[in-house]
Design a protein around this nucleic acid. Sequence first.
DNA 1: GCCAACGTTGGC
DNA 2: GCCAACGTTGGC
Length: 194
Amino acid sequence: MTKTLPHSVDPQTGKRYWLIKSEPLSRIEGKDQEVAYPLSNLLTNSFTTWDGVRNHEAKNHMLNMSLGDYCLFYHSNCPHPGIVGIVEVCKEAHPDHSQWELGNKYVDPKSSHDSPRWWCVDVKFNRRLKSKLTLDILRADPELAEMALVKRGRLSVTPVRTEEFLRVLQMEKESALKDDLDCEIPRDLIDIVS
DNA sequence: GCCAACGTTGGC
DNA sequence: GCCAACGTTGGC
């Protein structure tokens, strides 16, 4: 595995930006483990632990996250995958306890408490995007052609460069303006109906 | 260290 | 549900 260095912080905010993927639609794995975690869950839970990531590259990105960093929140494995909101790192990397939980689908027999293999961060809600930015829209934008989400489709935690993050916010603004003109669906329902 | 087999992700 | 992409595993 290649050692990763974090991308640079936004000089304006001192933050790094990332993208994390989650499935919004209920899906049970194994006996009874719900794997879905829609952004709306973070409206009722004050934070969530981003555990269950079992890819070393994704894990390394989480090890590089700092308190206060922003993560674009992406809904995958659904009819219209895309970025739906922003969450904030509220606890830096700590061992992912699911690796030691008997019966957990993420258990890793090779991992010991002395040297954990898997790590996670906690994130809390920041805000919803005014309008979902679908993968189609993101892929069609030349300024996002190098974005890890586009180039490394299967990685569930990816870095986002400052200029990419700002571009996403700009696209949100443009897209929301368009919604005002031709979308009758109340904002709060957009995620639900999609 | 190579690489075939296998497993997983996630768009479609 | 299919399957391409790609990461991981393990035999050699």
